[in-house]
Design a protein around this nucleic acid. Structure first.
Lengths: 137, 137
DNA sequence: TAGATAGCTTGTTTTTTGCAAGTTAAATTA
DNA sequence: TAATTTAACTTGCAAAAAACAAGCTATCTA
């Protein structure tokens, strides 16, 4: 949870962002949804980052409450819930891509594929469109 | 502190970002340095966000350790330390601007001046250059 | 119909944060 | 030059949050 008690986190855009998705687990969940095609509770859990079940549940609830992700029962298997980015969540993509661009420069262990980073720098609009297509139902 | 024990936060760019500057106080310090012209411990403290002295000291040390900010004794008043963004820190600007752009859309209490947001959307390169000039010594 | 799967919830321990007070070095004032 | 103030922390302690382990409930599968 990102801090509900502190007064007035709105106003300043950075403060507002922090109150909406500003902790490491939320970022990783958004990453999973945006770039990794993960959509189920179990997929987030097993992503190998080591998030606890209670924290995952809490972050999913927060992100849903903030309108960044949506939760729906899977129509085929009704014991599963599908999480996806809302429009509001999808619009975080430029920020996420800027972070990826930065990290690729400074993390000498980066695993970002060269193809991805080249596309990001040479034709970002094309990359964005491809990623958006993958997010469609 | 963003989590030192967990193994291998490098590799994934989002995870790497989180390990380098991924908590709300770090974001706010970077905001202060990047956009608000704040450079002294006391200015961060009195920014009105309510950060504790020990947390501020800890975050400044972390950011310095990660090469995102630098710390120097003020030459005029040697009891003061000047903090500034390094090149690595300055290069977080696209990410920060993307976050501002997003927050302006979704925070109905946004305080981002219309002039700023218009420039960000119409001539981002010009805005970036102006902001960079302000960061120069 | 007896597991197994999926998505949580509930304790309990450990870690981090927030708050108040104290410390140290440099600068200013008396 | 002694006394006070400023600036930047550090320390100790209580409170909050996170991590860990276990348990629970509703599907679904064999």
């Amino acid at each position: 949870m990102v801090d509900k008690k502190t007064k007035n986190w709105a106003g300043c855009p950075i403060r507002f962002g922090m109150s909406q998705f500003g902790d490491k687990w939320s970022f990783l969940i958004i990453r999973d949804l945006m770039f990794k095609g993960r959509r189920y509770y179990n997929e987030f859990l097993e992503a190998g980052e080591g998030i606890s079940t209670n924290i995952l549940a809490s972050r999913l609830a927060d992100l849903e409450h903030n309108g960044i992700i949506s939760k729906r029962q899977d129509t085929e298997k009704r014991s599963k819930n599908i999480y996806r980015l809302t429009e509001k969540g999808i619009e975080l993509m430029p920020m996420m891509l800027a972070m990826i661009d930065w990290a690729e420069k400074y993390d000498d262990q980066t695993e970002v594929p060269a193809e991805f980073i080249n596309k990001l720098r040479d034709s970002p609009e094309k990359l964005r469109q491809e990623l958006l297509n993958q997010l469609e139902d």
